[in-house]
Design a protein around this nucleic acid. Sequence first.
DNA 1: ATGAGGCTTACAGTTACAGGAAGGTCAAGC
DNA 2: GCTTGACCTTCCTGTAACTGTAAGCCTCAT
Lengths: 131, 131
Amino acid sequence: MKIGQVAEVSGLPAKTIRYYESIGLIEPAGRTSSGYRAYQEKDIETLKFIQRARSLGFSINEVSALLTLWNDRNRASSQVKELAKHHVADMDRKIAELQSMKNTLSNLIEKCQGDHRPDCPILNDFAQTDR
Amino acid sequence: MKIGQVAEVSGLPAKTIRYYESIGLIEPAGRTSSGYRAYQEKDIETLKFIQRARSLGFSINEVSALLTLWNDRNRASSQVKELAKHHVADMDRKIAELQSMKNTLSNLIEKCQGDHRPDCPILNDFAQTDR
DNA sequence: ATGAGGCTTACAGTTACAGGAAGGTCAAGC
DNA sequence: GCTTGACCTTCCTGTAACTGTAAGCCTCAT
């Protein structure tokens, strides 16, 4: 299979697949006689695995760790669980931060008339020096 | 005031202040005879404004727009409100995305024993080819 | 054999800075 | 007068995870 088809079935852009190879996340693919990348079933499964993990927000480094665990028949499931829990904790932190920023800004928006007049509580708040 | 003190009162690292100058977000600061940046009260207010806007998650580009609006005595408050609402919508999207990823992963985590045994529903799910 | 579309590499651009090197400046202390 | 240490300067590199673009092969159908 050539990279274009692999891109379709894996859900990852061809460009991204080449990138993953370039940073060493995946093994260099085999090549046809003319130099095109040639993928095996196993490679495609790996790329699908990566796509799935990335879509859940794991970083490339985390995905790399997950791949290692996946390929280690004897790993303890606790290792995977720990990694996943860390990631959930990260997401929780980000959600809380976004929520807090959103709440603050929403409050300011409510106070702003939003008409043709220049007076704006949002800008006034940003400009407030004593907070 | 020199950049170090400005960093303290504005809450922005000196490095960041220089960076903002380099990308044109703020006007180049004045200089002392020996070449150090010298800041006026107005500059400091601007930097505080930027810090506040950035802390609410506005991008540099958005902050730039906000600064322009702030300096335009005749802008309509509706312009500011629109910009802010866009940003809240962005944050809402991000929150929803994170929440969805978190829910999916949390479900998988619950199913994983997390003990010394290798069997792991999380990895199994990632490896699932038919989804 | 020719044209379309897929593949190749390589390099630049994105966002918002942080780290570090090499060197100039300033105030205080001996 | 000199040194020391803190602060300042510019310049370059690195980060995360790609995306865009250019210039040039390869393949296949007509």
